[in-house]
């Protein structure tokens, strides 16, 4: 609880002042990097795995925030790409591949291809039709996974052997795997921040705000959206691959449509189109869920109330709320 708590209090402050915004991410990174060493001392071993899962989900949520918040593409099939990534790892492990980098890299590539193909068709539609068609494709992937009896079908597939990370270490080492996930998540987040400030990012936001005008300005709107969609799909696939190693297990439930919806909810909660929106939303949602589960069976209720409250009182998300409070202070 200590670490994720710190994560969520550092995030809003990032919007406060330029100096804080530059320093706090590094402080956060340092704290997280020290966590595997501190956890055994503080008796927080259980939370090591939890924070690692948090970081993995943040990668997926950040990629969704990129197409939804920056690109205006309301996709409800993101879990499908998480699944493509996870099942790519399953397929490679089943075929005898033992290298984590090879498996994860292949997952990245496979989900990029899947997203490019699905995007090429879906992006011809807009709004609620786009939402429905991305959902439909994700459901097709879900039932495809269910029917893959070679990989356990409905029952899923256990990944009993940890993947090799090189130099004699593997994903079975809790701390090392944590650091690897942290490094990848930090890299993805830095990349995302960089892209948001780039020519590509500005073009994407222009498309979100006024697609017809962007086309009339000479922008290849469709190709720009497709590139963003494929890139986001690739990162969701990477998250799926990491999740496969994290859980040492993959099943179709990973790509159930409610997973896509939960991801969407976390991004909206944190703040659509805001730099810290996705990590903040994931941290708040998953930490609350975890804590509430310890106390009550009916843990969905308070989460639902939280979502309703945020939608009414801070429709632009928690990140926007904290940014405003920061300016007022």
């Amino acid at each position: 609880m200590t670490r994720p708590g710190k994560a969520s209090s550092a995030v809003p402050a990032a919007d406060l002042a330029p100096l804080a915004a530059r320093v706090l991410p590094w402080v956060l990174l340092a704290v997280l990097a020290a966590f595997p060493l501190l956890a055994p001392v503080l008796g927080l071993e259980y939370w090591l795995g939890f924070v690692r899962r948090l970081l993995i989900v943040m990668i997926a949520a950040t990629s969704l925030n990129f197409i939804l918040g920056y690109g205006g593409m309301a996709a409800l099939g993101h879990a499908g790409f998480i699944g493509v990534g996870a099942y790519t790892v399953v397929a490679l492990v089943d075929a005898g591949v033992g290298s984590a980098w090879l498996a994860w890299g292949a997952a990245l590539a496979a989900s990029a291809l899947a997203a490019a193909a699905i995007g090429a068709l879906s992006l011809r539609t807009r709004g609620v039709y786009f939402l429905m068609i991305t959902l439909a494709f994700a459901q097709m992937l879900y039932y495809l996974a269910v029917s893959l009896s070679a990989y356990g079908g409905d029952d899923g597939y256990g990944l009993y052997t940890p993947l090799a990370l090189g130099a004699g270490i593997d994903t079975g080492d809790e701390a090392v795997f944590f650091w690897v996930v942290l490094a990848i998540a930090a890299l993805v987040f830095a990349l995302f921040s960089r892209i948001a400030a780039s020519r590509f990012g500005h073009a994407l936001m222009g498309i979100r705000d006024n697609e017809t005008r962007m086309s009339a300005l000479g922008y290849p709107v469709f190709r720009l959206k497709l590139a963003a969609f494929a890139g986001a799909g690739a990162l969701a696939g990477l998250a799926g691959a990491l999740l496969a190693s994290h859980n040492a297990f993959v099943s179709p439930s990973l790509m159930h449509w409610t997973e896509s919806a939960t991801l969407l909810v976390m991004v909206v909660l944190g703040g659509l189109g805001r730099r810290w929106g996705a990590p903040l939303g994931v941290a708040v949602w998953l930490v609350l869920a975890e804590v509430l589960k310890l106390h009550t069976e009916y843990w969905h209720w308070p989460l639902g109330l939280l979502l309703i409250t945020v939608v009414f009182l801070a429709p632009r998300g928690l990140a926007a709320l904290f940014a405003r409070a920061g300016r007022a202070a």
Partner: peptide
């Protein structure tokens, strides 16, 4: 049809960007 939430300068930057180099550059 302008980008209402953006400043005039950001509007112009976006228009000029369409004709100076690739908008796929992302780093």
């Amino acid at each position: 049809s302008v980008f209402g939430a953006n400043t005039v300068f950001d509007n112009l930057l976006l228009a000029v960007q369409a004709h100076t180099g690739s908008s796929f550059r992302c780093l």
